[in-house]
Lab assay of single mutants.
Amino acid sequence: VTLFVALYDYEARTEDDLSFHKGEKFQILNSSEGDWWEARSLTTGETGYIPSNYAAPV
């Protein structure tokens, strides 16, 4: 399992994006889409796309 942590807060701009807060942890589901990764929040259980430059490996 690849775990990442949010470096900044992010507010979803589309219904496919995932809103999150700094410090929140994610499981990365798909990182082959370039700058946007499909991720599941370990806090909320929700799935959506996150900007890859807002996350770092745990």
Score class of each variant (00 low, 15 high):
D16G: 15
R13N: 09
K22W: 04
W36K: 11
P57D: 04
S41Q: 05
E11F: 09
E24K: 01
T2A: 12
Y8V: 07
Y8G: 05
D17A: 15
T44A: 01
A39R: 00
F26E: 00
Q27P: 00
T47H: 08
A39V: 15
S32Y: 11
G48H: 02
D17L: 09
R13P: 07
A12R: 09
P57W: 06
T14E: 08
Q27K: 07
D9M: 03
A39I: 06
T43P: 01
I28L: 07
L18I: 11
G23I: 02
T43A: 11
E15P: 14
S19C: 05
G23C: 06
R13Y: 07
T14S: 14
E46N: 12
K25W: 14
F4L: 07
Y49R: 15
V58F: 11
Q27Y: 14
E24D: 15
W36P: 04
A39L: 02
Y8W: 11
G23L: 02
T2P: 11
T2H: 12
Y54P: 02
E46Y: 10
D9P: 06
S32D: 12
H21G: 08
T2L: 13
P51E: 02
Y54V: 05
L42A: 05
L42E: 09
R40I: 14
F20M: 10
P57I: 08
S52K: 14
D9R: 04
T14I: 06
W37Q: 03
Y10C: 04
Y10F: 09
T47L: 09
G45R: 03
V1E: 13
A6E: 00
K25Y: 15
E11Y: 09
K25E: 09
V5M: 08
N53F: 12
V5W: 06
W37K: 02
W36E: 04
Q27S: 08
A39E: 02
A12Y: 01
L7Q: 05
S41N: 14
L29M: 09
H21M: 12
E15T: 12
D17S: 14
E33M: 14
T2F: 11
D35M: 10
V1A: 13
E24T: 08
F20E: 02
V5L: 07
H21C: 12
S19Y: 02
T14Y: 15
F4A: 10
T44Q: 01
V5D: 01
V58E: 09
W36C: 07
E38L: 15
F20P: 00
D17G: 15
W37A: 02
G45K: 04
F4P: 00
A6W: 01
D35S: 09
S19G: 07
F4E: 00
F26N: 00
K25V: 15
E33A: 13
G48P: 00
P57A: 09
P51T: 02
D35E: 12
I28Q: 01
L29N: 05
L7T: 05
N53D: 10
T43G: 06
E46D: 09
E38F: 15
Y54G: 08
S41W: 02
Q27C: 09
E33P: 11
T47N: 05
E24F: 03
V58D: 10
